[in-house]
Design a protein around this nucleic acid. Sequence first.
RNA 1: GGGCGUAUAGCUCAGUUGGUUAGAGCGCCACCUUGACACGGUGGAGGUCUCCGGUUCGAGUCCGGCUACGCCCACCA
Length: 848
Amino acid sequence: MATVPDKPTLDGIEERFVAAWESEGIYAFDRAAPRSAVYAVDTPPPTVSGSLHMGHVFSYTHTDVVARYQRMRGRAVFYPMGWDDNGLPTERRVQNYFGVRCDPSLPYVPGFEPPGVQGKATEQVPVSRPNFIELCERLTHDDEKVFEALFRRLGLSVDWRYLYTTIGDAARRVSQRAFLRNLARGEAYSQEAPTLWDVDFRTAVAQAELEDREQPGAYHKVAFHRTDGGGDVVIDTTRPELLASCVAMVAHPDDARYQPLFGATVTTPLFGVEVPIVAHPLADPDKGTGIAMICTFGDLTDVIWWRELRLPTRATVGRDGRILPEVPDWITTDGGRAAYDSIAGRTVKQAQARLVELLRESGELLGDPRPITHPVKFFEKGDRPLEIVTTRQWYIRNGGRDDVLREALQARGRALAWFPEHMWHRYENWVGGLNGDWLISRQRFFGVPIPLWYPLGADGEPDHDHPLVPAESALPIDPSTDVPDGFTEDRRGVPGGFVGEADVMDTWATSSLTPQIAGRWSDDDDLFVRVFPMDVRPQAHDIIRTWLFSTVVRSHFEHDSLPWANATLSGWILDPDRKKMSKSKGNVVTPIELFDKYGSDAVRYWAACARPGTDTAFDEGQMKIGRKLATKLLNVTKFVLGFGELAGQVELTDPVDVAVLNRLAELCGEATRAFDAYDYARALERIEAFFWWFCDDFVELVKGRAYGALGPERQASAVAALRSVLADLHKLFAPFLPFAADEVWRWWQDGSVHTQPWPLDTGARATMGDQAVLDAASAVLSDIRRAKSEAKVSMRAAVEHVHVVAPAALLDALVLVQDDVKEAGSVAALTSAVGDTLEVTVRLAPAG
RNA sequence: GGGCGUAUAGCUCAGUUGGUUAGAGCGCCACCUUGACACGGUGGAGGUCUCCGGUUCGAGUCCGGCUACGCCCACCA
């Protein structure tokens, strides 16, 4: 126990307590606790791709506040931290930071040192995959140190012994084990199919990672020629560059304009390829000319038409986003070959410009292109529109192609408790709208390898239908360096031998297993059964469709349960102009600057004021208020403790002293109910309101008596009440202002406030503690203050006489506190009379 | 086009089952340097609760609708 400092200060408080909490093991998870006594948090592992921003500070504070509350409620809180250092953001950052790019065909170079920051991508030094991964690990390690320091400074009550990374051995083992089990049960499968493809990253992407962006484009009216000599059929297209991929024309079956043409054929402009005119209900008579060309593949509707109408595949766009170099065999005319040659090898954009020129020359372009703006599908991290290419990929079933599974997963969503509740609609909406299974394979380098090999036939071709799987005990493995059972390395890549799967799993395929990774499923099953299913998943609402849903999918398959009972969704941080705060706009304030300026407690206060799930304006004003609150907590504590400690049992002599304890008990009840509903903001608001009332009204009311003005017995009663309220206030503020609360607690108590039991409403109400006395005192004192303020005199100015006219009930209450009221108002004489409404007449003593 | 959210003081927001005169903080104005705190305290001004209709003795609160803003999904010929 320390003593009360002469000059309380928040300076340096974080540094002291971060160290104290660590050395005292305040937040250590009690792993002997049974599941029923545990509160487990599925902490979001932030992406290690640079720096943490205010959005992180905001939402992680919400979780920490709840974790601290649960700890004080006596739960063994399992609050791990993870770093998501696996995936594209890391690759991209490593490329820029070290000036390298990965070339998997290169051999490993031991002791390789990167050149450092480079400007252009073309100047980046190619390195082998093992070298690239080393650099990824090196850089993420540095970033993670910075992240940890920031989270500690923020006061997160994480047990850092349970830190995990999504690229670490343990996470790779869990991820590969879960995948292999999905495979064994038929929940994972590979398939060669048209896939959305990012031409810059050169990888497939999943439905959940798409976003629409408004892009400039143009409608081109293009004429196709009927082979029966009946004239032209005109389409409107935004993608004339795909003319060579055209496999059919399509119109709505009910469209009278085109009904006569169904079954006829046309030749494509420039390329002269004969294609049929077909009918399909997805064709929209109101769009363009009402008839469209089907290409393989211009968009997802093309894929549907291609599949349902069993059309041929005529791909012309390669995985690099350029037109394939060889003239395809379906183009047979000389003119067609010439036209193709002039676009071969060009980007789709260049090819479009060239083909428009050719169409103009041939007269097959009718009129000028009409510029439009339209939404185009992008990879959310990508820079160019997605193309659709046919590739072999791995999928995990998610209900997108199976209504029974879809319903089962929607039932999981309904069984989950959502905070706020309406966020559930996004889940329901998303699962209901899925149009395919979950594509998990990525043609990238830094990720968890898909743990498979394929046998090579005598012709050297891999047999994708019979993959070779490792034993679970061998995990994690890298099929590019490890060898399947029964083979030796020299059988790699030779006929009759084997080949390793080259792809890695998408980040979400691993982060969908954070409960299993954090709970050390498969490595420490004793721990896992104590923490799983977890209590809460806190996360941002924009990743319900990715992280939340995919975690539900994995848990559904592997454990036949929800991964957690509750999901809490935090909102965005908005700029003062209500736009989402983003780095690109250059308006991000770094958390450290704010910690330095206002203190961590103050920043936490700002975050904790935001109602769960509500988008919140970034507001330094709130941080100033938070700092004021923390300072006030220090000062009022110093003041109350200054009255000294009381010996023995103290009898509460004055009704106000009992009344304040009753009001406090009600507050504890309200705060507890709010916290149990994850409404930390409401709890804070109530606690804060009580606190300021306590400082401004109650302490002022009884401080004369606490100084001893009304005798030692009544002094003891006042001091006992003050100290009792103070102790509970320290506890009530502990989740929100962990630094200031622990500081003041340790001035007069042993141990840390953070291991104290949360103050509950005991329900006990002494009869003499009618809160009417508090209201009566406040009402009269308020009028006395007003009189002094209007007279422009000090609040300490002497009052000769106060006359109170009020209803009898109020006067009855006032009698019980009149001694305190007179003390607090420096009132010499107080008289009263019964009346309908409260009326206070104040006669100030003459100045002097 | 479908779904969801928000709308209360100049600003940021409370207002839980409908009940006297709608609250807080910031900002603003005036005052008080009082024996915890000037990183303080007291008082004051400031709102037709987006709008229209309905239910009710009574609506910021419930119901229907409008408008504005935001988000998610779908559409991408």
